[in-house]
Structure formats: structure tokens, C-alpha cells
Design a protein around this nucleic acid. Structure first.
Lengths: 137, 137
DNA sequence: CTAATTGCAAAAGCTTTGCAGCGCA
DNA sequence: TGCGCTGCAAAGCTTTTGCAATTAG
């Protein structure tokens, strides 16, 4: 039951939070902008303000329930934080997002940070790709 | 002479463009926000509008003279496009930016894109790090 | 001379915030 | 009941755009 998820985070179980969590889980896409979530709420007939969507998503992010990404689109996209870490591949033609994880890359990243005297806290890796066969500009 | 760089790009050699190019080359930091560039222009006593800074940087980017990055800071940073490709490591404590390039990671990225039926057009890899010894929150 | 470029101010996104009222615990 | 949460509207930021004046070639 999702309401437990919220309680465990110290957040009151409110209708907006439940609905937003639902949309993140079963909203059709794994990667949603705040607008996307807001639109789905409206379509579902829910009276939730866009400001609340941002506030809730930000709280979820702070709680580790959600990850925020900045693909080069001018706005953030949010996804439910899954158990396993992964990176993203974005198709420049279709906008399709593919997730992947490469242990070798992960290992190298850690090694590189340490080689420079730092500890790796987080990272962002996004591949911008095109279907094979099409030529760029 | 830098004015040749501009001419080669098909851009008129104007004072704002020359000054901005100069700042990108000798501005103290390799990675500058539009505001950073604008502030340096003001400090140098130049009468250049912020809108012009954005327009010029965007033109330079389109021309391949400059690269735009989106570190998680809420604004873009620009750097002169150097010959060799490289990625970035950002220190969360100090904001320091370190450049690096790892052939193994580059190779894996290309292979991953192709394994999914795509051609790698571009990528963004940013490591967020902390000096060793300090604990995160 | 003429098209490109610039400055200013206004507008356009996306996101955050102030505040009064509502609702969960 | 009380504090947290929400909605609305307004404000904040970065970035873009319209337009008349200016300038490079």
C-alpha cells in the first residue's frame, strides 16, 4: 500500500501525494515532467495545483523516492527511483528514453574521481542518439 | 588573430563578439555562465547588453566554437570548444570543475548506443564529487 | 547602402514562494 | 485541535524576442 510509503517518509497521506505517486507508478511513461504529471491530474479530474505538483515532487526527491533529471529540454523530468541505478539514452528524433546500466562505466567513474582525490557522490550520464540510417543535419 | 575566427564562421566582426571571445579565452575560468561573461564585460567598462551575450554565445555554440553545459545549477555554463573532447567533474563543496577524458568510457558509450540500434550523436557525463574525508550531510 | 547586429525592455518559460484556508492525524 | 498541506496568485530566474537605432563590409 502506497500510503505506507508516504508515512515512512514522514509525510502526511494526502490526496495530491497519493495521486501523484500513482501517476509516477502507472502513468504510462517512466519519465515525466511536472507539466506531464499536472496534465494527467487534470485529465483525471483532480483539483491539484501545479505548485503542489512541484512541491510534492521536490519532497519526493528529497526523500529519495524520486529522481530528477535534466535532459537538454529546458525542464526537469522525474522518475520513480528504482532499486537499481541506471543511466539514460535519449533519442533526438523521437524523444524516446532508454535506460541502461554499464558496470564497466560505473567502475571507471569511481576510479576517475578517486584518482583526482575525490569521492564520487553522484553522476549524470546521458547519451543523445539517433536511429541508425538517418543523417544528422 | 581572433577576428579571423569570427569571419570564418560567417559572423561580422563586432566589438561585443570580440570581447566575449576574449573573455572566454582569458577570463580566468574555462566555464562561465552568461551572467559571468556579462559581469566581466561590465567590469571592463564595455556597454554590452545581457541579451547580446546570450545571442552571441548561442551563435558561437551553433558555430561549434563554444560548448554549452547544464550542470545542476539552474543555468547553463559555456566553455570554448577545445580540440579534444572531455567530460566534467564538479566538486559539490567548492564548485570547482575538473575536466577529464576516459577512452574506455567513450568506447563503452558508443557500443551501448549501437547495441540498442542507435548512433551516438553526443553525450553528457558529469561526475558530482566531494573531497575525500568530508561526509555528505 | 543594406543587411546584420545591438540595446533595451518586454515577454516567455519553468519553478518557487507568500499567504489564507483546508484537512490529516 | 493544531500543524502540515494545498491553491492561488504573484514573484524569481534564466533565457528569448520585438523593434528601432546602429554598424560592419
Amino acid at each position: 500500500m502506497e500510503s505506507d510509503d508516504l508515512r515512512k517518509l514522514g509525510l502526511k497521506v494526502t490526496l495530491p501525494r497519493m495521486k501523484i505517486l500513482e501517476i509516477l507508478e502507472h502513468g504510462g511513461k517512466r519519465h515525466l515532467s511536472a507539466e506531464d504529471v499536472y496534465r494527467q491530474l487534470l485529465e483525471a479530474g483532480e483539483e491539484v495545483g501545479l505548485a503542489t505538483v512541484y512541491r510534492v515532487l521536490t519532497q519526493f526527491e528529497a526523500a529519495g523516492l524520486v529522481r530528477r533529471h535534466n535532459f537538454d529540454e529546458g525542464h526537469s523530468v522525474f522518475e520513480l527511483a528504482s532499486e537499481e541505478h541506471h543511466d539514460h539514452m535519449v533519442c533526438l528524433k523521437t524523444g524516446r528514453v532508454i535506460e541502461f546500466c554499464d558496470p564497466e562505466i560505473e567502475r571507471r567513474q569511481k576510479a576517475i574521481a578517486e584518482a583526482h582525490g575525490y569521492r564520487l557522490c553522484d553522476h549524470s550520464l546521458i547519451l543523445y542518439v539517433e536511429p541508425i540510417g538517418e543523417e544528422g543535419s
